[in-house]
């Protein structure tokens, strides 16, 4: 599995498409608490975790139980960890749960890339 992280609008998906020759059909873009691991690439995992938090599901546990399905995937998650602690309890839990998930995924990944202004920084 390859994990790509970075701030909003930094070009994470564009990087993944170019680096791994992905087409639109290869990408599942999360919009809520459902996820499709049949695609080579899963984008916007932060939206999946947002949906999970609202349903009271721990995203890290979800990923652990579905490990076989994503072990060869390209996973993209937004870095949402550098701001002030959010006032809103849901957003606070979202940030925490996404952070726990990213640490777990980074541990499992064969490669971790951070995208900064469209440029790759290899973290692992």
């Amino acid at each position: 599995m390859i994990l790509i992280i970075g701030g909003a609008y930094q070009g994470k998906l564009d990087f993944a498409k170019a680096a791994f020759a992905l087409s639109e059909e290869d990408v599942f873009s999360c919009t809520g608490d459902t996820i499709d691991f049949s695609k080579r690439c899963v984008d916007r995992i932060e939206e999946f975790t947002y949906g999970c938090v609202q349903k009271g599901v721990e995203p890290k546990t979800f990923f652990q139980t579905h490990r076989e399905q994503w072990r060869d995937s390209i996973l993209i998650c937004q870095d949402i960890f550098c701001g002030v602690v959010p006032m809103d309890p849901d957003q606070r839990e979202w940030r925490q749960a996404t952070g726990r998930l990213c640490q777990y995924l980074a541990g499992e990944a064969s490669q971790v890339s951070r995208i900064f202004c469209g440029l790759e920084q290899r973290l692992k």
Partner: peptide, 17 residues
């Protein structure tokens, strides 16, 4: 660099970012 926080911004702030 203002892209790495966990705030769901209003529309015009998102456009700006």
């Amino acid at each position: 660099y203002l892209y790495s926080d966990a705030i769901r911004y209003d529309k015009s702030t998102e456009v700006y970012r």
